[in-house]
Simulated scan of single mutants.
Amino acid sequence: MEAEQIHCGREVLTQSRGLLEGSRLGKVELRFVASRFHECLADTLRVAESRGIRLGVEDPRPDDNMEELADSEAEA
């Protein structure tokens, strides 16, 4: 699962670079790119937290608002 998430993140970076360097983007394209970045960042954080838990590393500053933020973003 982690490998798929990392692969997806790399694909988004590669494809978005072309979009962002190209001509002016409209609202729809920018929203798409931002949504994909959001998904990939959330996956990256889950992977990092999962690896930290497996290594016995605790988050020195737990962010209790992360779930609230994710929920509010999903509703928007």
Rank of each mutant, 00 (worst) to 15 (best):
M1N: 11
A3R: 15
A3M: 14
A3L: 10
E4P: 06
E4Q: 11
E4W: 13
E4F: 14
Q5M: 13
I6W: 09
I6F: 01
H7S: 15
C8P: 00
G9S: 14
G9Q: 06
R10F: 08
R10N: 07
E11A: 13
V12Y: 08
V12C: 07
V12W: 08
T14R: 15
T14E: 15
T14K: 15
T14P: 00
T14L: 14
Q15K: 14
Q15C: 12
S16I: 07
R17Q: 12
R17E: 08
L19C: 05
L19V: 10
L19Y: 03
L20R: 04
L20G: 03
R24S: 14
L25Y: 05
L25I: 05
G26S: 11
G26T: 09
K27P: 09
K27R: 11
V28D: 12
V28H: 09
E29A: 12
E29K: 09
L30R: 08
R31N: 00
R31D: 07
R31C: 00
F32I: 01
V33C: 06
V33L: 05
A34V: 07
A34R: 09
S35Y: 05
R36V: 11
F37I: 12
H38L: 04
E39F: 04
C40T: 07
C40I: 06
C40E: 09
C40Q: 13
A42L: 03
D43K: 06
L45E: 05
L45S: 10
L45C: 04
R46M: 05
V47I: 15
A48I: 11
E49D: 10
E49K: 12
E49W: 02
S50M: 10
R51I: 13
R51N: 08
G52I: 00
G52C: 14
G52E: 02
G52T: 02
I53Q: 13
L55G: 08
L55D: 13
L55W: 08
V57M: 09
E58S: 11
E58A: 15
E58Q: 12
D59G: 01
P60W: 02
P60Y: 04
D63I: 01
D63F: 03
D64C: 00
N65D: 03
N65Y: 08
M66G: 00
M66R: 07
M66K: 02
E67V: 08
E68C: 06
A70C: 02
S72Y: 09
S72G: 00
E73V: 04
E73Q: 05
E73M: 03
A74N: 03
A76R: 05
A76G: 10
A76K: 04
